[in-house]
Design a protein around this nucleic acid. Structure first.
Lengths: 210, 210
DNA sequence: GAGGGGAGTTACCGGTAAGTAACATACCGT
DNA sequence: ACGGTATGTTACTTACCGGTAACTCCCCTC
């Protein structure tokens, strides 16, 4: 695929340094068009730099891909920690805030699914440096859900977390298959999650939160 | 990626005709390594034929991809119809047989997820001939589930079908992210589906089936 | 102002991709 | 035997891709 290059953007001194520009461009292009569909030259051009600089910062395209995914994972981890800091003891509100975050993701037009999952589909070689990052991130995500639901007083938190995890993963992949917005089964996933949580059993002795 | 070509297989007169051999090779290679990772030459060689014959049967690689996916969709439709024919009125048994089929898919070692969903991730151009096939298939699949659950007496069959649909889609994509077999949340999806169906409300007036 | 490092520029390499042209061969019904 | 059709073979074009070399420029620091 040819990604249209309107006019070469000029880097100004106020701009972030090249490494950051490259990562920003890679994030946008990899996510939008797919990893295999975007060449390093396209990324360098979009980052207002050139291939040599790219290769001086990242030894190979594969390492750039790994850095791109690690960046996303770090940001997601930071978001989760911010959520924990905002509601340190109120687990119900933390869940609610998380659900609202999911709603934004799913309802966003032009959502292209989970970048991690997409990368796992595109990069099937087991030796690829990205695979470790993807796997670690998904397990971390699942463990966080288990802990959150456990703290929130749900019984069988592992079971519940897996169900929530799979529903959301399914929604994000499904949106890419049923592209007409709002029509696919994925668009109602947050409502489904709410009703699932409402129906799930909780420890009764728990004090009312907040 | 270089797909190892051990030794050029010779087509024998008893072999299926080239078009079918090409489709079989494409299915195996596309599914195993990904669509973008496999070139037409590799497919032709694996099919014990050559690129020219491939291009005489399929006008382009994109059309070959579309034919590959249409083939899969047709077979899945046929499998579903066979299920309907086997249990024409016993919807509970039909569900049970379907669940057992899912179990085989998910527990199969080296499962690479849903070929349709993977293709949707790899082929993001909206004009690609494969997109219509993918979208049609997924909607058909969802509608079949709605009808089946409705016939089986479940209340809110749309809601239930969407939940089942998303759980399974999530499981198949999740298996690709959590490659260590049996560890990820996807490996227990069929048990989750069973408990989901058991918990879901059903029309009480329905006669006991079989 | 000399030096050095990070960044930009240009040109290039080898490999592989999709797709095509021209030709040769095998099969098959008549 | 004939002619058409499907197939096989080789070679080619065009384009892109990941990656590298050699060189220049600019800015910061000592």
């Amino acid at each position: 695929m040819k990604i249209s290059s309107t006019s070469r953007p000029q880097p100004s001194p106020a701009d972030p340094p090249p490494r950051q520009r490259i990562l920003m461009a890679a994030r946008r292009l990899f996510y939008e068009h797919g990893i295999r569909a975007v060449g390093v030259d396209t990324i360098a051009e979009a980052a207002a730099t050139n291939k040599m600089t790219l290769y001086r910062h990242f030894g190979s395209k594969d390492e750039l891909v790994a850095a791109y995914l690690q960046d996303l994972a770090d940001e997601a981890d930071a978001r989760w920690q911010a959520l924990e800091a905002t509601y340190p003891d109120d687990f119900a509100s933390r869940i609610e805030a998380w659900l609202e975050h999911l709603e934004v993701i799913v309802n966003g037009i032009g959502d292209r699914g989970c970048a991690m999952a997409n990368a796992a589909v595109e990069l099937r070689e087991m030796e690829h440096p990205a695979r470790r990052i993807i796997e670690d991130y998904k397990f971390r995500k699942r463990d966080r859900l288990v802990a959150l639901f456990g703290n929130a007083g749900y019984v069988e938190p592992e079971m519940l977390a897996d169900e929530v995890f799979l529903l959301f993963e399914g929604a994000r992949i499904s949106i890419q298959c049923c592209t007409t917005p709002g029509t696919g089964p994925g668009s109602r996933v947050v409502a489904m999650l709410r009703s699932l949580l409402a129906k799930h059993d909780r420890r009764p002795s728990d004090g009312l939160s907040t």
